[in-house]
């Protein structure tokens, strides 16, 4: 090892790195809060006429924030669509097949069209139907058709071991969205017992929050 590299090695220890990263995180957080402050100030200036309304909304928000967290808030904090693993695209590829078109609509958040495409794929039965049903249910959740999403997720959660953890995760979120925290809790408990869980940490966090 060269002398220069030895010197460099001495320079990095966990505590130093932690301190440096803490500074970086502070700088990022400071910028975020300063931006929040600036935005709020300019909004106040622009919308002076609507000040009384803003005050009312702020007071209402403040009152709501004092209350316990609702299941819907937990849903909003945790929900994000599952990435498209069925037809991952490269830039040079064109979108040709029904499957590619459906999943492309899913990726660009055109969920209604995606659902139509998924229905066609399910009728043709020439693709992994368990996966397609999952993506359909997530699309339904995204456009607030929660009941139908729950129905699909609950009915198919045991269909395929590969997708079971995803089904249970989105089913628990759907229950939260539907204001059914007890069912969400039970589903998360089942998910926590699964050998493979793509949301292991989030599952435990949600369970902890729901039990308090």
């Amino acid at each position: 090892m060269s002398k220069n590299l030895e010197t460099k090695n001495k320079m990095i220890n966990d505590d130093d790195l932690k301190t440096v990263i803490a500074k970086e995180e502070y700088t990022k957080g400071k910028k975020q809060l300063q931006k929040l402050e600036t935005n709020r100030f300019s909004i106040q200036k622009k919308w002076l006429v609507a000040a009384s309304f803003i005050v009312f909304v702020s007071l209402l928000s403040f009152w709501l924030l004092q209350k316990d967290v609702t299941p819907k808030e937990l849903f909003a904090q945790n929900f994000e669509v599952y990435p498209n693993l069925i037809t991952p695209k490269t830039r040079s590829e064109n979108t040709n097949t029904l499957k590619e078109i459906a999943f492309n609509n899913y990726e660009i958040k055109n969920y209604k069209e995606a659902i139509n495409g998924f229905n066609t794929l399910l009728a043709l039965k020439n693709t992994d139907t368990t996966a397609v049903k999952l993506y359909k249910a997530i699309s339904l959740l995204s456009i607030d058709n929660t009941s139908e999403a729950i129905s699909i997720l609950a009915k198919n959660k045991e269909a395929n071991k590969k997708w079971k953890d995803k089904y249970l995760w989105y089913l628990s979120l759907a229950y939260l969205k539907n204001n059914q925290p007890e069912k969400a809790n039970k589903t998360l408990e089942n998910l926590s017992k699964e050998e493979y869980n793509f949301k292991k940490k989030a599952t435990l966090t949600l369970l902890k929050l729901l039990k308090e």
């Binding site: 320079m11 790195l17 301190t19 500074k23």
Partner: peptide, 16 residues
């Protein structure tokens, strides 16, 4: 006792 408020040493500045 906050990490972000600490004065960085010369080595920490290089690391930063």
């Amino acid at each position: 006792d906050f990490l972000f408020a600490k004065e960085l040493t010369q080595n920490q500045k290089k690391l930063q």
